[in-house]
């Protein structure tokens, strides 16, 4: 396959960036998208050009490290896949492919296509946990039965990989799908109840402080989410936050 790649190059957080064009030939259909970029980088190195910097790690769609806005969509044209699971057979020879970093004020660019998503960690730290110490004396795992439906829904929410595609896709750069996934997971489990109110209030507050946009229910995040996290979670967060605000003592 012969392709024309248009890639965002930016040397550092404060530098000015621009789209650069790289023609590439010899791309194979069985390559993953990131292997295609490896292949490009190998050529660039041989030509003495600094390789394109992008985040990636597990390359099997679970670590959430890879990102990229490909031809106008987060993680490219595929559905329920991350960029590392996208394969070149989705493209045709002769295609022009635009490759841009995830864009949001809360995701500043580090270099080229690599962005800083630590805002997500800070949202988690604001309440995305259950306060239980390691002791070896917690109650038996089967002491509290959890209805299968709730356990399954909690699991579905918990499969969020924190990649940021929701933010990148959302026209408002909203992080609601991400935040609501963790809030929902604990909201659906009995273990999450004692801290449920504080959790939703604090996590939403942190999300606001990070400078993410708001939700206008376009549903784009759900479509582009590689793990298919449901909008139902955002509704649950909305509901929990409403009740928590009304009933909290503060």
């Amino acid at each position: 396959m012969d392709l024309t790649l248009k890639i965002w190059r930016q040397n550092g957080p404060q530098e000015k960036g621009e789209m650069k064009t790289y023609p590439i030939s010899g791309v194979e259909q069985d390559m993953s998208f990131l292997e295609m970029l490896d292949y490009l980088n190998d050529q660039l190195i041989n030509e003495g050009i600094e390789p394109v910097v992008f985040d990636h790690d597990c390359r099997e769609g679970i670590c959430g490290m890879c990102s990229l806005f490909i031809n106008g969509e987060a993680h490219g044209p595929g559905r329920k896949v991350t960029t590392c699971q996208l394969h070149m057979r989705e493209f045709k020879s002769g295609d022009t492919i635009y490759i841009e970093p995830f864009r949001a004020k809360a995701f500043p660019i580090i270099k080229d296509l690599m962005v800083d998503r630590s805002a997500f960690d800070r949202i988690q730290r604001a309440g995305g946990y259950i306060s239980v110490n390691t002791s070896g004396n917690t109650i038996d795992a089967n002491a509290i039965p959890v209805p299968k439906e709730n356990a399954d829904k909690a699991f579905d929410a918990a499969t969020c990989i924190g990649c940021g595609a929701c933010v990148a896709t959302c026209k408002n750069s909203s992080a609601m799908l991400f935040a609501s996934a963790k809030i929902s997971q604990f909201s659906l489990l009995p273990q999450g109840q004692p801290e449920a109110k504080e959790r939703v209030l604090n996590m939403v507050h942190q999300m606001d402080l990070e400078g993410f946009g708001n939700c206008t229910n376009t549903g784009a995040c759900e479509v582009e989410c590689p793990k298919g996290i449901s909008l139902e979670n955002i509704a649950r967060m909305n509901r929990d936050y409403l009740f928590a605000s009304l009933s909290s003592n503060k």
Binding site: G72, A104, K105, G213
Partner: peptide, 8 residues
């Protein structure tokens, strides 16, 4: 929330 937009 998105000071720099996408090209495509």
């Amino acid at each position: 929330a998105r000071p720099v937009g996408y090209v495509k």
